[in-house]
Nucleic acid binder design. Sequence first.
DNA 1: AGAGTCATGTAACGCGTTACATGATTGT
DNA 2: ACAATCATGTAACGCGTTACATGACTCT
Lengths: 179, 179
Amino acid sequence: MDIRTLCLGILTLRDATGYEIKKVFEDELSHFYEASFGSIYPALNRMTDDGWIIGKAEAQDGRPDKKVYSITSAGRMAFMDALDKKPRKDRIRSEFLAMMMFSDLMTPSRIAHLIDERLKGLATKIAELEDCPDDRGNGEVSRFLRGFGHAMYVAEQNYLEENRHLVEAQALMAHAAAD
Amino acid sequence: MDIRTLCLGILTLRDATGYEIKKVFEDELSHFYEASFGSIYPALNRMTDDGWIIGKAEAQDGRPDKKVYSITSAGRMAFMDALDKKPRKDRIRSEFLAMMMFSDLMTPSRIAHLIDERLKGLATKIAELEDCPDDRGNGEVSRFLRGFGHAMYVAEQNYLEENRHLVEAQALMAHAAAD
DNA sequence: AGAGTCATGTAACGCGTTACATGATTGT
DNA sequence: ACAATCATGTAACGCGTTACATGACTCT
């Protein structure tokens, strides 16, 4: 499931412009997927060539034309095929954790700072998810997805608070040994 | 922190061949990073050109030469610089969750199957982490990293068990509506 | 007999990011 | 004044995967 296919999926939910699709990525998928304009617009053009979607240009006053895309029946079939394949395993890349691996090369204060920043970011995301009042999107499912993100962030928060001493102690020892 | 830099980091911990570095990725980093031979070997060659590491060829009987790499002081400095930069945000790409977003396009049994498979995979990973008897790697830190993976997998497991009904109910309704 | 481990590498290719280019409107 | 929002796109580039190529040894 590359970005192209995901854009197609979003168009099964509602018609949208490239700009709006980007917002769906930010608002509803940001916890487990992301995409830039540089990948969305070419994806849309290519799928138009493939006959999977069609875009209607809408003139606007002052702004450039808006292209509202709709999925075609061929596109719907293509997306159904994608849903039949088994999902490949998650790809995760956490620089934060990679850096933690080398905590004995950092000063204790540097490590503490990295963890504090991480916790700050987590707190922000958790607050965002909790303050989200309206369940837009398709109700139950988007609650499920938001809840998923929330559960992961909270679990990480708890783990870091309870176990940061493991890396911080290591750094202290390495630091003391260097003296 | 690209794969190249991470390989460099691993060489601050111990001398290693490309093959052994791959194993470090699999054994210690698999929860939050991965790399293929096709990225590791070129990384090693390029860092050799840069003077960050040096490889000593060791002849072996029957097998091709083994190249054991060590980090140079220039390489160590380069890695320290990388550790000073602030980590960029995690990149996550979960096809499983992306598919869940479209649960109303799948049959209830398909969704149940996807979730069951996901839970099976989680159980396997959790068991692996719990059955890991020896704390190899640098003690505290690798316990921290393993514990992190464990905490995340368990949190996901709990969330899925408690909330799968949200997506499964949605699929049932969509399915009933289609009749 | 076949799978798995040890061992290194290259080539093609695709995917996606980043930066650039443009520009009006609206809110602070 | 300045940032943000709306709106679309291209070009260059890098990163990394996948598949291919080679080959012996060991365990089941």
